[in-house]
Write a protein that binds this DNA or RNA. Sequence first.
DNA 1: TGTAAATCCTATTAAATCGATAGGATTAAT
DNA 2: ATTAATCCTATCGATTTAATAGGATTTACA
Lengths: 141, 141
Amino acid sequence: MISKKTKYGIKALTYICANIDKSPIPTSVIAEEENISLKFLESILSTLRKGGILASKKGKKGGYYLRKDPNKIFMVDIIRLLSGPIAMVPCVSLNFYETCEDCPNEEECSTHRLMLEIRDSTLEVLRKKSLAQLTEESRGR
Amino acid sequence: MISKKTKYGIKALTYICANIDKSPIPTSVIAEEENISLKFLESILSTLRKGGILASKKGKKGGYYLRKDPNKIFMVDIIRLLSGPIAMVPCVSLNFYETCEDCPNEEECSTHRLMLEIRDSTLEVLRKKSLAQLTEESRGR
DNA sequence: TGTAAATCCTATTAAATCGATAGGATTAAT
DNA sequence: ATTAATCCTATCGATTTAATAGGATTTACA
């Protein structure tokens, strides 16, 4: 399960992408449109800014906008930033690898093997999907 | 991330499958071999029994054994039992569906769309992989 | 130059979940 | 009887989650 943080983050980014002409967009507008708690969303957008996905403009008429072309922002990076590892188990994580204390040999661990396959199929989806693409699919129908 | 419950459950099932000739296998043996807390494993195997994957024999010389042919036990069912929904979000879950309070229209929700694709690619892996197959891949190399 | 509207920062909290741990009741083989 | 197993219920500490609170700072604009 992904957290609400991740879910709200994706929705917010899609909103910003869909309204890219109106940016910077204040947190309050997104919170209202997407039914997200304002303060919670503030912290999420802050994470996305620190992570290099969003940029912000302070003060009146300020808000958030995309730092890069949404065709060049991929969902893997967003999910990694908001949720942490893509892998369902640290021992198959590319970016957050950890050994298991209970496994003498990773190669022989059935969980390891299975989760490796799931990680790969998930990565396949997330690496291909850009924010621009997701936004178009969701809104443009 | 999957829980340790799920991880240990998969490892235990693989152990039982790999040692099917010696079944029923007592919890204590699996706990020792796979470095799992005995009491924790007890509760996991109990879940697997109640879920119809394992059967048990009580008393001395008792233990757990597979209820069905391991070629006919698929990883989807095991994961569902131990972790709950395969989907990363309740609104795309086949077996644990729930509406989101914040979404007026699911079809237009970007998170929904993305998680639908991930669910499908994950299901693809989990539905195809049998316990027998996973056991062979992990142990037999 | 003052005010409104925004980001930004730090801290707290209530609730839920996780990963165990504890203690014993029950059942069956020898 | 004894031993070795499942089975059942309850508790617990730690961590994470999803907010909430309060305010400091920055900027547009009248």
